[in-house]
Simulated scan of single mutants.
Amino acid sequence: MTDKFSAAQFTAKTLSEALPYIQRYVGQIVVVKYGGHAMVDESLSAMFARDVVLLKTLGIHPVIVHGGGPQIGKLLDRLGIASEFKGGLRVTDEATMEVVEMVLSGPINKSIVRAINQAGGLAVGLSGSDGQLLQATKATKTERDPDSHIEQVLDLGFVGEPTGVDTSVIEALLQADSQLIPVVAPVAMGPDGHRFNVNADIAAGALAEALGASRLLLLTDVAGVLDKDKNLMRDIKVGTIPGLIEDGTAVGGMIPKLETAAHSVNHGVGAAVILDGRAPHALLMELFTEHGAGTLIS
């Protein structure tokens, strides 16, 4: 009896301590980029879905943008389609684009929708092409050659760079009396009607900016941004991010995350956080506890 009472008391104390943080976010939009290990681990996936439903129940408006890199990679391997990365982004030719859209807008999107609905929510699956939600053009990226230190232009194929966001579909789903939770696959439409593969972090950042989100949460497979000694960097100012990329502290997939975080914060998003999606209840720890989780970019 004592153990049960202590557990109940601890739960009540935790809820009470979370109150001021809950009040801070009520009525606010929180854009969450969901991907990595958390998507393929069934227990973490179910936990994530419950946490998203809890946010909505508390009067917060989560918008989920998901990736699917590992799942895309597996299907490309099965089909014998070669794939490579440049500057942390997947090079996407026509054949790869077919697979990207099929995986992102199909089984991955619907599995997230089902998980949220199973947890008691009302999720709606969308593609960035729906309602012209995400508009994009061919991405132009450069990378510094490690030997010559000369900037080289990268040809990423049908990788898109957001040029516009039409939020009307999302806003319709987020009306004051609505319990709907948008789940967005980052496939965008170009001016000529061609589809583009948009990095999920970048797509989430573009949506967060257009929606005036209070927070942009980027879930990843590491604890956050790590320094060169592999220690977690709790807080990063936007102005220091170019230096972290230049000196090699940030590499690979962390580069678009940091660039997206910086851009979103500079364009009206309250703050961005890069956090560990493998940690149970990472969303709740970040939003509702004093110390948060991961790396805060402000």
Rank of each mutant, 00 (worst) to 15 (best):
D201F: 10
D166T: 10
A188I: 09
L207W: 03
L173E: 07
G205V: 02
A204R: 00
F196Y: 12
L174A: 12
H194K: 14
L180I: 11
L156H: 06
S168L: 12
G160I: 02
V183L: 08
D155H: 14
A188D: 00
G160W: 11
V184M: 00
G160Q: 09
G190L: 07
F196G: 00
L207K: 06
V159I: 14
A203S: 00
G190E: 08
E171H: 11
V187E: 04
N199D: 02
G193A: 02
F196L: 02
D166N: 15
I181C: 08
L207R: 01
I181A: 03
A203C: 11
T167V: 15
H194G: 15
V153T: 15
F196A: 05
T167Q: 15
G157T: 03
N199F: 05
S178F: 05
P186F: 10
G193C: 01
A200V: 09
G164T: 06
F158Y: 15
Q179P: 10
G160Y: 13
V153A: 14
G193D: 08
L173H: 11
A172C: 04
A206V: 00
A204L: 08
G190N: 09
V169I: 15
P182V: 06
G160M: 06
L173T: 07
A204N: 06
D155Q: 12
G205E: 00
G157A: 03
F196D: 00
G205Q: 02
V159G: 12
G190S: 06
P182C: 00
P186L: 00
E161M: 13
I181Y: 06
A203K: 05
P191C: 15
T167R: 15
L207C: 05
R195L: 13
G160V: 03
D177K: 07
P191R: 15
G164H: 14
A185T: 06
D201H: 03
L173V: 05
D155V: 13
G205I: 08
P182G: 03
L180P: 10
G160R: 04
A204C: 01
D155M: 10
M189A: 13
E171R: 10
Q175Y: 09
L174N: 06
A200G: 10
G164R: 12
L154I: 04
G164I: 08
T167K: 08
S168V: 13
V153D: 14
A188M: 01
A176M: 10
T163E: 08
A200T: 02
A203H: 11
L174R: 08
Q179T: 12
N197M: 03
M189T: 13
N197H: 02
G157F: 12
V165T: 05
S178P: 07
A203E: 04
N199G: 00
G157H: 11
P162L: 05
D166K: 13
D192E: 11
P182K: 04
V187K: 01
D192P: 13
I181R: 10
S178V: 01
P182Q: 03
F196N: 05
G193K: 05
G205D: 01
D166G: 10
